[in-house]
Write a protein that binds this DNA or RNA. Structure first.
Lengths: 172, 172
DNA sequence: AGGACTGACTTGAAACTTCAAGTACGAGCA
DNA sequence: TGCTCGTACTTGAAGTTTCAAGTCAGTCCT
């Protein structure tokens, strides 16, 4: 049974609608925002649940392992990892603690500068990543690349970058 | 300081690369996926933090209030709310419990069918939403609509819908 | 009528994230 | 040399989400 959602302004919006800096969205923008919103919520949920079911890894855990495996020495500073995983440092620190307990990474102070801490991928962590990767990649392909032709893929990339640039401008 | 990430196949991928159903991503696809991934993580984080700072609401709480306010009787079944908020029922139930404590919604059994429960927006909840909306909408506009011209907006909408359709196909 | 069954929701515990301090190292400087 | 400062990280508590049962109302079947 379908729930009705309006594309018109709710009554309580009426008075704001014309005010200078609180411009409401046009019906067309609203539609776009709804589509984007749903994608932004459901795509990570779908990818995360494939990973969780098939490999016992969360989305972010997978990308932490992937980022480490990308380095020739399988090592990164926690702060670098946090940036690559789009995560805050505190969250990452807890996460590394848990992954350390599972034997996927090791933590050590950076020998060249004691302020930093580095995480290193263990063989077992690499192995787990290697097992998880094909299934994850297949899901990325199925959900994204099979759904979009080349032009659409290009458009999405450009748009995503434009939005991220705006987000970056926000937190100076 | 920039961390180097490769756009080539990691060594451990080599043997899988040509195998039938575990096709790795092309460098071009990888770039697109990275851009989309970052957007998908950071856009909700940015919107959520604006809402949290300015109105003490999380992203999902805002959209629960918004969905309720969209109904003429300011009422929805929990399962409908869960679907509209792209959330699982259990999460929504906990969330409604907390919002009930804050006085934003009320919970009651559906008089017409005791299996359902309905949530109703309180005046205080509506008021909170009305206060929060302009700031949130302004942020949506800044991050998305100011960043994309009309064609790009249209492309994004189409692509987002195509991806969501795929996600839907996944969980039959 | 009665019994199995389904779908909607609740609940509690465990896992995870966020928030607010706190600690520690090194840089810059008196 | 010792002081102050900033940055990187850790930690614990509080808040939130997920997971696995459990409850309960109506439906279907006999």
């Amino acid at each position: 049974m379908k729930v009705q959602v309006s594309s018109r302004y709710p009554p309580w919006m009426a008075t704001r609608k014309t005010s200078r800096d609180a411009r409401w969205l046009t019906p067309d923008e609203l539609e776009t925002w709804r589509a984007l919103h749903e994608m932004v919520v459901r795509l990570p949920a779908a990818l995360g649940s494939q990973l969780q079911n098939d490999s016992g890894l969360s989305f972010i855990e997978y990308y932490v392992l992937a980022a480490l495996s990308d380095q020739t020495d399988h090592t990164l500073r926690l702060s670098q990892l946090a940036a690559l995983a789009n995560s805050e440092l505190s969250r990452l620190s807890h996460l590394i603690t848990r992954m350390e307990k599972r034997g996927f990474v090791r933590r050590a102070p950076d020998p060249s500068d004691g302020r930093f801490n580095i995480a290193t991928l263990t063989p077992s962590g690499l192995n787990h990543l290697v097992e998880a990767a094909p299934g994850h990649v297949a899901e990325v392909r199925r959900l994204i690349f099979d759904a979009l032709d080349e032009r659409a893929q290009h458009d999405v990339r450009t748009a995503a970058r434009a939005i991220v640039r705006r987000v970056d401008e926000g937190d100076l």
